[in-house]
Amino acid sequence: MPLTAKYLFVVSMDVAKEKEALFNEVYDTEHIPLLKKVPGVGAVTRLKTEPAAFNVGGERKVLDGSGQASYVAIYEIDSPDVLLSKEWAAAAEKGRWPSEVRPFTSNRRHILRKVI
């Protein structure tokens, strides 16, 4: 399916094993729904790293995810300004995310990509 957004905000992170179930519950039932209410935020897609192998140039390559975050969320947004809005800032601090989940995340990365 083609992207309709002009920008992608990509967030990746790991979470402590003992908090993984809570992380997934809160992300899906609170964090994403709150952020999707922010003007300029469209679809949100979550991904989890999985091991894989592929062939390229006659060689077999193994992807084990070493050094990469286990979880990724891709937010389709209209503009980089969305990330600086009062609404985004407020939504990111609501619910259980800031106190019960965020402290147990690590290897966090944030990047903005322009769709070309």
Rank of each mutant, 00 (worst) to 15 (best):
V72K: 11
P103G: 09
G58L: 09
A52C: 09
V56L: 15
I74H: 02
A43D: 10
V72L: 15
E25D: 14
D64M: 09
L35C: 06
A89K: 15
V62Y: 11
A43Y: 03
S66M: 11
V101I: 15
A73S: 15
K37V: 02
F54Q: 05
G67S: 12
E30M: 09
L63R: 08
L22R: 07
A73H: 08
T29S: 14
I32N: 01
E59R: 13
N55S: 13
A73F: 05
A52V: 01
E59M: 09
R46P: 03
V41S: 05
D78V: 01
A91C: 08
L84G: 09
D28A: 14
A89I: 13
S79F: 08
E59W: 01
I111W: 12
G40Y: 07
G65R: 12
N107R: 12
S85Q: 11
G58H: 10
P39Y: 02
E76V: 04
L35H: 04
S66R: 14
S66F: 15
T45S: 10
K37I: 04
G40H: 05
L47R: 10
I32D: 03
Y75G: 04
L35I: 11
L34K: 13
G65Y: 13
A43R: 15
I77K: 07
G95D: 07
D28P: 00
S106A: 13
P98Q: 05
H110P: 00
V44G: 07
F23T: 01
G67D: 11
S79C: 07
K48V: 14
N55H: 10
Q68M: 14
L84V: 00
R109V: 10
Y75F: 15
A43F: 02
S85E: 12
R108D: 01
P33F: 01
R60D: 03
Y71C: 03
A43Q: 14
A90V: 13
K86Y: 02
Q68R: 15
A69I: 01
V101E: 03
P80C: 09
E87V: 06
H110N: 10
A52L: 08
K61W: 12
L47P: 00
A91K: 05
G40P: 06
A92P: 00
S66D: 13
L22V: 03
A90N: 13
V101F: 02
D78E: 15
V38E: 04
G58K: 07
P98R: 07
A53S: 15
L22G: 00
T105R: 06
G58Y: 09
A43S: 13
D81N: 06
E76D: 07
A53K: 13
V82N: 04
S106P: 02
K94Y: 00
A91M: 03
N24L: 15
V82M: 08
E100L: 13
R60F: 03
K114M: 12
K94T: 10
A91T: 06
L112W: 05
V41Q: 06
K94R: 12
K61D: 00
R96W: 02
S106M: 06
T49D: 09
A52G: 14
R113S: 01
A89R: 14
D64C: 04
E50K: 14
V56G: 03
L34R: 04
